[in-house]
Write a protein that binds this DNA or RNA. Structure first.
Lengths: 346, 346
DNA sequence: TTTAGCACTCTTAATATTCGATTGCTAAAT
DNA sequence: ATTTAGCAATCGAATATTAAGAGTGCTAAA
């Protein structure tokens, strides 16, 4: 990697370009910058800086005679080095508090409320993804009979998340069978990670009792479903907002966006790769021809103590308002963890 | 309404125009029709027919010297009077059978499989919406304690749908309290429609026992959630496919589509208004400036005997392949009901 | 009743032209 | 050594012009 040591004025120029471009979505010219951006230099001076910033890869030029646009590297430098903390307005703080305090019943409700609120305040599309199965510890597993031929399996994890599924049988299930299932599964699985409830484990458990093949098969099948449920626990909010952004005038960008949300894989990779402690900023690569090319994703982990409750994130244009988004996220993140710890300590 | 009695040739012309436009998405000219569409008339003759069809509102002209495009009324006539049944290919039939027989455990799974399959075969966006609360009868209501301070409420309806929610308390819940809740709620609510579980009912039930206000409030709150859950039971598949359609080159159309799926209300109105017996075809009004203007929606009710299991539908451009979609829907609908009745009779 | 013929309309694509924003460079100013 | 003014050169975006062609409507003939 190059040295990328910027003198003060170049930093200011880069910052001004990024911020101006975030506001206007138009390439930024040296003239614009020389007046009214706290940069008391002539356009020629700024022009020189811009040329050098372009040389070391912080800026791009859409065409020979146009203003500059930040490159992915430019955004990255801006986010890491130049970003100044944004402050939320009193209204925003009040609004967030109100939205988050209403729903205190379920972790899922809280996640949902946080996701919605994040989208409402930032006007970007927000996504929440539940924690991965191998990170959750089984605290309780319960079989509940419903009618004669239905059984509900409820699994409570250490994070307070509850997963359940229903199993239907071709034959009647007796109460004593239910009892046996309850004690067997609890003994074998309590304290184990959720991902341990797999086929071999179920088969092992069944080897100790004598159930019909039909019952065993039905249970094993549904149990796999619970473990693989990641897709089902995705919350999506405010997708329509994105379509008001100028970048969505390009059909290609709009299509990439829809693909991203519909296919989910690329998105999940980024959501799951983030650091647990921080707010993570992913900036779409310039040249790559993936669906993410034109987008940035900012995520944070929703936690309770040291337990993972999933990831909440924003998907927006690379030209997104990083300062604002990060500020809102920090606040919501803090609020969530406060609430959770309060509850945990009860 | 006008007479709209069409002679045979005009019917053929209208049908040819609709079908050609469905295929090409381009306005259809008299010349195109006169050769190679089974219409052995000169372009001039067809031109005359087209002019008359336009007069009575079956066709539109994008501009003075272009071919014709079907109007909403034209599509409507085509669907009601001219549509000839399409046949599924053997592969398609096999594919549907395979997809639907795998998941036999849960009604929800079956609905999900049907929705996915419908989208895969038609390449349109499909949506499934659960039945409304007032149509479902409570068959069993069960409170299950999880840990010391969590309670899960499970409601089984006559249609075999299971709804559940979790309630967290600030105080411990005793086993005898759970028992009381179980018997009270079951006695009062079994056999009643789901929509009956409302606030007054809960308060009435609570008047018979003496619980802390905290417990009552928490239960009532979550119970309302179950009843209003319509939004949560929406399944959406294949949204990205729509963005490959030529009509989505128009930003306006794409935006309307996203609004439709994001806001849901307009869409739900149409889904819920359909006739229970039939395949319902809604065709977007020409002039209206709603989000639906450019789209058609085709729905059918998923039933078991005479019980409503919800509605499954397709949202596509007005220029959608009605024959194909209706054929696939009819087949899937038949299959679903077969399966359900088989299970019901077990 | 149908069709050939033809003038007319209007879109689309291609081409040219203008306009202006912006740059890069050079030479002068600080 | 740094900054700036000045200016030619570049290139895109907007506008105008033209040409080509697809399609219609109408009239008169078949």
């Amino acid at each position: 990697m190059k040295k990328d040591k910027l003198d003060d004025r170049k930093k200011k120029v880069l910052q001004a370009i990024v911020e101006e471009y975030i506001n206007t979505a138009e390439p930024v010219s040296s003239g614009t910058l020389s007046k009214g951006h706290g940069l008391d230099y002539s356009s020629a001076t700024i022009r020189n800086d811009m040329a050098q910033l372009e040389n070391i890869g912080f800026l791009d030029k859409p065409h020979t005679s146009s203003g500059r646009v930040p490159s992915a590297k430019g955004y990255r430098y801006y986010v890491n080095e130049l970003l100044k903390e944004d402050n939320l307005s009193l209204e925003e703080i009040k609004y967030i508090q109100k939205k988050l305090e209403v729903k205190v019943n379920e972790i899922e409700d809280l996640t949902k409320a946080a996701t919605t609120t994040l989208s409402e305040i930032t006007h970007y599309t927000t996504v929440a993804v539940g924690p991965k199965a191998d990170k959750q510890i089984i605290e309780e597993i319960k079989f509940v009979s419903l009618g004669q031929r239905m059984l509900m399996v409820v699994i409570v994890t250490d994070t307070g998340l509850v997963k359940e599924t229903i199993i239907k049988f071709d034959e009647d299930i007796t109460n004593s069978q239910v009892d046996t299932l309850n004690s067997l599964f609890n003994v074998r699985l309590k304290g184990k990670p959720l991902s341990k409830i797999d086929k071999p484990m179920a088969e092992y458990i069944f080897s100790e009792v004598h159930y019909s093949v039909g019952i065993m098969k039905a249970i094993i099948e549904q149990i796999n479903k619970i473990v693989d449920e990641e897709d089902n626990s995705i919350i999506l909010e405010g997708a329509k907002n994105s379509f008001d952004l100028p970048e969505f005038k390009s059909m290609k960008v709009a299509k990439n966006f829809v693909n991203l949300l519909d296919t989910k894989e690329e998105m999940l990779d980024i959501f799951n790769s983030g650091d647990a402690e921080d707010i993570n900023v992913f900036i779409g690569d310039d040249d790559e021809n993936s669906n993410l090319k034109d987008f940035s994703i900012i995520t944070f982990k929703h936690t309770m103590g040291d337990k993972d409750l999933g990831t909440i994130g924003i998907i927006g244009p690379k030209r997104m308002d990083y300062a604002k988004v990060i500020a809102v996220m920090k606040y919501i993140s803090k609020k969530l963890n406060e609430d959770n710890n309060k509850k945990e300590g009860m």
